[in-house]
Design a protein around this nucleic acid. Sequence first.
DNA 1: ATGAAAGCGCTAACAT
DNA 2: ATGTTAGCGCTTTCAT
Lengths: 322, 322
Amino acid sequence: MPTIRDVAKEAGVSSSTVSRYLNKNGYVSEEAKKSIHAAIELLRYRPNEMARSLATKKSQMVALLVPDITNPFFTELAKEIEEQAYQYGFTMILCNIGNEHEKEKQIIEQLQQQYIAGLFIATKQIEASYYEKLQIPMVAVDRVLSEKIPTVKTNHFLGGQIACQHLMACGVENVLCIRASSEEDVANERIAGFYSCAQTLQIEEVISAYEVEATKILVLEKLQNRTYEAIFASSDAMAIGTLKAIQQMNLRIPEDIQLIGYDGIRMTEWTTPTITTVAQQITQIGQRAVRCLWKQMQNEDILERHQLVAPILIKRNSTKGE
Amino acid sequence: MPTIRDVAKEAGVSSSTVSRYLNKNGYVSEEAKKSIHAAIELLRYRPNEMARSLATKKSQMVALLVPDITNPFFTELAKEIEEQAYQYGFTMILCNIGNEHEKEKQIIEQLQQQYIAGLFIATKQIEASYYEKLQIPMVAVDRVLSEKIPTVKTNHFLGGQIACQHLMACGVENVLCIRASSEEDVANERIAGFYSCAQTLQIEEVISAYEVEATKILVLEKLQNRTYEAIFASSDAMAIGTLKAIQQMNLRIPEDIQLIGYDGIRMTEWTTPTITTVAQQITQIGQRAVRCLWKQMQNEDILERHQLVAPILIKRNSTKGE
DNA sequence: ATGAAAGCGCTAACAT
DNA sequence: ATGTTAGCGCTTTCAT
């Protein structure tokens, strides 16, 4: 592989001139530009990112930290962010953190050594202060880490409202609300939004783990004791578990009981019946997150520290209504 | 961040000695070892991977190239490989290639500049000769790129046989076989295996795109004209599309028509009914792939160039039988 | 067993 | 506008 010096020699200039040409900073005469360009083509030269990073202490890599890569929401997010970041010339590293604090810190340490240019954080296991100390451009995606750290997330309060309004428009008067642990802020917001519109709606609330199977078992039990006109599952994975439980009870959807999910992952259109859901606009989240990181790298001002993306209702067959 | 020279100074030795200590090559006295160890602890020193890579022309990163990160099979595979690779001290970069030849070549070029230590290739858009020229340890995952390139994949011929045998055991006499394009070797193998057991079974074959919706439309049309006792969908995504089509026709599964899928992705246990499927053992594929790459890095002999992993039947509710 | 020195490929003052 | 020089943090001969 040719180096910058090979190019310089071939073009009859010094390597600094080539470097300036490459980085488009400093002056380079038109003449030099031409010969350098030709030399690069001739030698099929590509700058070595490693050497570049070592010299500048900045790489062209950004990383996305997620708790579980097999969770479809995160994969869809990863895809969007990867594509966007690629447009800006960055390579995205996807890091699956799992639930171990230690692994996350270790991985971040490694990323720092690689002079990672920026971080998208979709995990939440470490104290915010740890991230703040990092001194790396970063944006929290779909969760608030702290006031200071720029954030792009869905307006979950609005999402909760949308879910509630839809159910009420479907003539529902009592509903079972399946939510994640109250430690999860995003869950709290969804539920708060839901309540904020509830008016005379009767709500029973229950906490479930994220897994499909766990939710199924839980709902099965619930349905044994009591009937509901509708169920609001605050994630689509839970909605699928709920669907399975309802079907196992031989209840019809939406005739006997209506169901609305949350997230908008692809799978909700593959079930029978398809599931009405409050969809997060993942593409937009990805775009904004990347732009936000980009601005930080350019030291531009970030006008809104916390950006909210509105979710939208996707009406399918698990609810009545229009 | 402290450098190797800081450690050397603190330990009262030269940086070469520290380097030798770090890489466990060359001689280092017990005494030196102790003081270096202490210095490292004291300064919380971590070697800079970039600098290391630049000097050695080898990084600690491996990459997995997939055509579509939102395809659950690949995410599950990615998770396994990531975890395995992490055990060996590697960071895995997940690269979503999409369908563009150009992007794949560009990305590989970038990876080379980063002195990528190894490649897991789960795409198939480029001529095998391109990969062979690369001079990077690599393993083809779930597809054969060429004779020369080490491969770990499911024994799809066996998988096809398993599917066929199961259907026959379920009393099926005629079946619709939904397959991917004949350009996909893995599809060909599955189908070949299926036929190899078919005996008196009547088989109708049809080609479908991978997408759930596309398959649904196709199957819907098929079912309009004719009835089948069973359908073999050669991927789970297709199986889900098929399921939807069958249900839309108001046929019962498995009473009116039985269904078997292929891949073993999580989703098949979330549909109603759950789908019987021939499951690829992704964990094992991941483990073997990483070990195979590792061996190449150690210049160990690779006993079997092409490793086959046996798939297993997961019997669920979309088929009759035991 | 250890250190000095050169170099990996690039960037960034600084001088011209 | 361009070249010289000195690193970035590490590895690796080659002496000693």
